[in-house]
Nucleic acid binder design. Structure first.
Lengths: 224, 224
DNA sequence: AGATTGTATGATGTATACAAAATACAGGAG
DNA sequence: CTCCTGTATTTTGTATACATCATACAATCT
């Protein structure tokens, strides 16, 4: 594997957190592939730290569902089956509905403005052809909605669930032909929130998630 | 504090897992109270292990939401405000609905039988006046339902959410006068599942959770 | 008296050493 | 040739040492 993992040391956080973020990002971006072993000594030397922060970061990844460890045999990047993905999706749809419903009720004018900016930024990013940037803009759009729900635990959960699909979803965003639909859906979601039309927003967000689900499941089916 | 924490060493699991379970149980049973500091050296000597497994266990508690750590200042048992509890409840109700709906569709005859046993066991346990036993029987009843939903990730999430309320809920179960209503509600849930009447079951489980919520919120309000 | 700083103490953060278990592989028996 | 077994190597599990940072308290200065 090429050594693309690099610690972002400018933050003065404990190393375990820096390592955690680094590994998570590596997993989400596909640099660490599902099933790949996470060996402590190897990671430690690659990241230039000792085993201790690596171990603690792995414990954290484990509870996020991004890594699986077998006692005395070490950790590996979590694999997802189609069933796993469907399970995650069921939960995500359900919590997404909740978040959207809450956001419809609670979204302030400033948040709506921020959402509009995120909408435009996403539209713009699709012209860049930079998948990572597009994914980031998409995350920000949805995050703005989730944040308006004013429930930090829900935000954390949704981010976590999204993460678990994220690394399978990058392929989806490589397909340029889907951009117009994505943009249109974002627009509809924005309109619905502006009008506080819960049912409309829920309908579109569900469609939005299900579209991704189909593609992600295809990707998983291929790799099996 | 009296030293009630004791490692259950018969399991041949890594110490971090044993410590994790021990600490979690301690928190849920109220031996470790919200706000209490989790000092590594102290815990290490109390449990007779070194700091390493303690630290890893704390990282795990942290992501379960049962502990909060401030860098360079250490960890403490998580406190919950009323808002936190409401946030958790919103999520729990939503996922509980999903679980119940799925269970209605998927529950097999054997699982229904198991549920009936759990129902009777709960009824019986209320006569024991042993709060821990009652709580355990209640957990098993709901777990049987959640398991029938056939979505392991949902099961994990719901267990985690329940845990976060659990330690505030023991008080609720000390009040003998609520047992008849609890038993009646369990019976209604069972009946609904047997008839596959989704709406009925959802209605009752929501009521069931909301009843607890009221009490838990009162407990939190008192302690603040 | 109040504020500030210096020092002692104790806690966490990180690295490393050693033990125990798992794995890989080679060599020999059947 | 296949299977088994013993050994070497690798990897994880745990303990511990040392560095760093936070806190408390006392002494000093204003």
């Amino acid at each position: 594997m090429t050594d693309q993992l690099e610690l972002n040391m400018n933050a003065c956080l404990p190393l375990r957190d820096v390592v955690f973020r680094t590994l998570r990002e590596g997993i989400l971006k596909g640099e660490l592939k599902p099933g790949e072993r996470l060996m402590e000594l190897q990671l430690a030397s690659r990241l230039g730290v000792s085993r201790t922060p690596i171990r603690e970061a792995i414990r954290m990844l484990e509870l996020e569902g991004l890594a699986v460890t077998i006692p005395r045999r070490g950790a590996m990047v979590a694999k997802m089956t189609e069933k796993d993905m469907e399970d995650v999706l069921q939960i995500r749809r359900c919590l997404d509905d909740l978040a959207v419903r809450l956001s419809c009720e609670k979204m302030t004018q400033e948040q709506l403005k921020a959402l509009y900016l995120a909408l435009k930024k996403f539209e713009e990013s699709t012209r860049s052809r930079d998948v990572k940037q597009i994914a980031q803009a998409d995350v920000e759009f949805h995050d703005t909605i989730y944040k308006a729900a004013d429930n930090p635990k829900l935000l954390t959960l949704l981010n976590n669930l999204r993460e678990q699909m994220y690394r399978y979803r990058l392929e989806y965003l490589k397909d340029v032909s889907v951009y117009p639909e994505l943009i249109a859906e974002h627009q509809e979601i924005y309109d619905g929130l502006a009008r506080k039309d819960k049912e409309q927003v829920i309908r579109i967000t569900n469609k939005h998630i299900m579209n991704q689900a189909i593609v992600v499941k295809n990707i998983i089916r291929e790799q099996e």
